[in-house]
Amino acid sequence: MKLNCVFPAHFDQQIQNAIAFLKPYTKRAYLVGGSVRDLCLDEPLHDLDIEVYDITPENFDSLMQRVGAVGVGKSFFVYKLGNIDFSLPRVEHKRGVGHTAFEVAICQDEKEASRRRDFSVNAMMLNIFSGQLLDFWGGKEGDCA
């Protein structure tokens, strides 16, 4: 399914820049989380989260440094550039008690990576290159209908 969305001007330019610097590395980069929900509900956008597939952590780090992104969650592969958080897709496995007792691993499967999101609507993913919406858990039908 495709989602036709119009970004506010300041986000549109940032998305176009992201497409330009990610294009040599992947065709699988997705808006994820609350920004997709807000687009579906025609709500104002506050920030964007983009999950980047098909790139190694080393190449991702190098690319993020080259474009001036700041690491904000290096153990979770998260960088901030403008109003966008870029991250690698990951899965988390509990290995003890408490909120820090888990193991993080890179995941190249969109459905598997989306499992860690808190609600089905936040698990939707919008491909920034094609506009294709991935909705493995029924978020659009449930919360965005």
Rank of each mutant, 00 (worst) to 15 (best):
K80Y: 07
F76K: 15
L48W: 02
F77Y: 15
Y79L: 09
L45S: 01
H46Y: 10
V72L: 12
F77K: 07
S87M: 15
V70D: 08
L88F: 08
N59L: 13
A69N: 04
Y79P: 04
S62L: 11
E51N: 10
V67W: 02
D49S: 09
D49E: 11
V78E: 15
V67N: 11
G68P: 02
M64N: 06
F60W: 07
D54F: 08
A69R: 00
V67H: 02
V67Y: 04
D49M: 06
L48Y: 02
V72F: 11
I50Y: 06
S62T: 15
K80W: 05
N83H: 10
N83A: 14
Q65I: 06
L88Q: 09
Q65C: 04
G82P: 00
L63M: 13
G71K: 02
E58M: 03
S75T: 13
V52L: 04
G82E: 13
E51H: 05
L88S: 06
S62R: 08
F60V: 03
T56L: 08
M64E: 07
V70W: 02
V52H: 08
F60R: 12
L81A: 07
G82T: 03
V78Y: 04
Y79N: 08
K74Y: 12
Q65E: 15
D47V: 00
P57D: 14
M64S: 06
G82Q: 09
D54H: 12
N83G: 07
F76R: 14
I55T: 07
F60K: 11
L81F: 04
L45K: 00
K80V: 13
R66H: 10
D85K: 01
N59I: 12
I84P: 01
K80Q: 13
L48E: 01
L45M: 04
R66I: 00
I55G: 10
Y53M: 15
Y79W: 11
H46E: 03
G73V: 09
F60S: 12
E51L: 09
V52G: 10
Q65F: 05
A69L: 08
D61L: 05
D47F: 06
M64D: 08
D49C: 01
F77G: 01
Q65N: 14
Q65D: 14
F86E: 03
L63P: 01
I55P: 06
D61K: 07
D49Q: 02
G82R: 04
